[in-house]
Simulated scan of single mutants.
Amino acid sequence: MFNKKTDYALNKMDSTAIIYTDAEGTIVRLTRDNFSSLDEFLKWKAWSDANYHITEKSNHLYLDHTLSMTGLSESVAVVPSPELIEETRQATRCHQRLCAELVMKLRVCLTETQFRRLWMYYADGMSEKQIAKLEGVGQQRISKSIVTARKKAKKFLSFQSKNRG
């Protein structure tokens, strides 16, 4: 975005003066009256315009490829530690292993059809109507199959957990 308050913008917008900011931050205007001749003023006006333009372009090269941290929350700048990354990976692997074990247990206690329909319903997010259309059967048959599969799975898994402890 173009900032109209920069030295470059102020100097460029005023063709009758050379504008700059002094060391104390005060904006100074040098007009034709501050020079010995019009040619002298025009020479320095052209130089200041060109110099400000070069400076502005170099600032854009830098600023256009950076992101200001102003206004961003601290969480954006936080980098997780290698230990936390490894701990997260291990937790993910453990979760995946437990899920795989659960799937294997479900395969044991359900018929192939029940497992397939349960998988399509929960894992694939398909509706009973979509499954019925895919398998060429009525929706009621799919619904009953899923309900029966859930009951068998719940009974099997609760039996498994009781025998563990």
Rank of each mutant, 00 (worst) to 15 (best):
R29H: 07
S68C: 13
D49K: 01
T66N: 03
R97E: 11
M104W: 11
H60C: 08
S73Q: 11
L38W: 06
T70Q: 13
Q114N: 04
R29W: 01
E74D: 15
E101V: 04
Q96F: 08
R107T: 02
L106N: 04
Q114A: 04
Y52T: 02
V79I: 15
N59S: 10
V76M: 11
W47F: 14
L106D: 02
N51Y: 12
H95V: 03
V103K: 04
L110N: 02
S81Y: 09
S81M: 10
V76Q: 11
L30T: 00
P82Q: 12
H95N: 06
S37L: 03
S73N: 14
L98Y: 06
R107Q: 13
L67W: 14
P80N: 05
L72P: 04
L110M: 07
L84F: 13
R107G: 05
Y62L: 13
I27K: 05
E56F: 08
N34E: 06
S73G: 15
T113S: 07
A100N: 09
L102S: 07
R93A: 08
R93P: 01
E87R: 14
V78P: 03
F41V: 03
A50R: 03
E87D: 11
C109E: 04
L42H: 03
G71P: 11
T113V: 07
S68L: 12
S58M: 15
N34T: 03
S36C: 01
L38E: 13
L42E: 13
K45P: 01
E74T: 11
A46V: 06
N51I: 04
T113M: 07
S81N: 09
E86V: 08
R32D: 00
T70F: 09
C109H: 06
L61E: 07
H53Y: 14
L110E: 01
P82C: 04
L110F: 03
T113N: 08
N51F: 12
K45Y: 09
R29G: 01
L63T: 11
D39I: 02
L106A: 06
S73R: 12
T92A: 07
L38M: 08
R89A: 08
T92F: 07
G71N: 12
P82S: 11
W47Q: 07
N51D: 13
D39E: 09
E86F: 09
I54H: 05
T31I: 01
D33G: 00
F115Y: 13
D33R: 00
L63Q: 13
K45D: 02
S48P: 00
R97K: 13
C94I: 10
E87I: 08
M104R: 15
F115C: 06
L84G: 05
E74I: 10
R116D: 14
R93E: 09
T66H: 11
A100D: 12
L102C: 08
L61Y: 09
N34G: 00
H95L: 10
T92V: 05
Q90E: 12
